[in-house]
Nucleic acid binder design. Structure first.
Lengths: 213, 213
DNA sequence: GTCTATAACGGGATAGAC
DNA sequence: GTCTATCCCGTTATAGAC
């Protein structure tokens, strides 16, 4: 239990240790409320190492996020590609499952849900560059796929609904984040299934020039 | 344009000026990234006044939030009461409109959407006490009302769906926050209507022991 | 690539005069 | 109720030895 970083020569996993510690603290307290000192202490590395490896606090956040989300996005795009080339007609359900399932199968209890949920809550100056960098391609590809199977919904309407879907997703990622209280891998998986059902219903509504009042 | 607080005797609107300034800065940058010094400067009051009136930074946030959300919740509960006592059968739509409409009719371009959207993104240590204080009653009353008109959906399932609904709401409040780029009162109102439609579809799904895979 | 030390600054909070 | 002045601590970032 060293309160001071033990001298750290040899194995160059310093970078990974920093990423691990930063990830947990960012999820728990958010970006602004987490200090590099706290990260360095938890990782048991020297404060200066955080700057050496990541340049700045923002750079560290971007690296933390990219490490976790890049594999998820790869799985999503591979899943979608499989659907598109299989010959079997796509459905809204199969597309949403390709989108959400990588969270479920991110085996074990991971920090990914909390990380995604948290980032969306950060001020735009922090979150926007990262969200654009990481999600633009995936968002566009999946909206196109949904447009194919929902020809009755025009594109502008579909964008609204896609936002609502993302909002529902974020909420469940936050509430059922494995770091939260009383959530298990099972309750998380159940939540993801409910999420798919809820969003399909909202996405598939007929789009007849709505009239309220 | 005094950079230093001008001497401030007489009118005791210091409190309101602090609340106004804090509200804008919290919405824009979040809680942790906003300093009391920045708030005092924007409000053109002395730093010590923030502590005198609100005790602490957290106390100030709670006051900012309560000032705006209390009237909204009153409108919501009054709207629901009217539905329940009017004799006209309630519908999921009329209940959701009682829930969401106070945001729309929060006349003018207000900070309320951004405020609600932002608070949900703050770490639990900040947001949880406030959210519980402000929303417990409203949430319970509206879930009960929805349970009445959706007898086919069991209560546990309804709780999931209510969370998804809140998530969709938060997302639209964030994206269409009047402080955001390219959003107008009109686009906000359109978003709220789409939100109601999306959520009704998700809430009304038949609940037949779902089976996936 | 990792360390110590420190620069340079900003944070929340408070005591006490007025 | 409002002010000034200050306490005390934490912040990111960097320079330079090893």
């Amino acid at each position: 239990m060293s309160t001071q970083a033990t001298t750290n020569t040899g194995t160059a996993d310093t970078r990974e240790k920093i990423l691990d510690a930063a990830e947990l603290l960012f999820v728990e307290h958010g970006f602004a409320a987490t200090s590099l000192r706290a990260i360095a202490a938890k990782a048991d590395v020297n404060l200066a190492a955080t700057h050496y490896h990541f340049g700045s606090k923002k750079g560290l956040l971007a690296a933390v996020f990219h490490r976790r989300i890049q594999p998820v996005n790869t799985l999503r795009l591979e899943g979608l590609e499989k659907l598109e080339t299989s010959g079997v007609p796509m459905t809204a359900r199969s597309i949403l499952e390709a989108f959400f399932l990588p969270f479920k199968s991110a085996d074990i209890i991971s920090t990914i849900p909390g990380l995604v949920g948290r980032l969306h809550g950060e001020p735009e100056s922090i979150s926007k560059p990262i969200l654009e960098e990481e999600f633009t391609e995936v968002t566009e590809r999946f909206q196109e796929a949904l447009a194919m199977v929902l020809p009755q919904v025009d594109r502008a309407e579909l964008r609204w609904r896609f936002h609502f879907m993302i909002g529902s997703m974020i909420q469940i990622l936050r509430i059922q984040s494995p770091l939260g209280i009383g959530s298990t891998q099972e309750s998380f998986n159940r939540g993801m299934e409910r999420l798919v059902d809820f969003c399909i219903a909202g996405l598939e509504q007929a789009d007849l020039g709505k009239q309220h009042d």
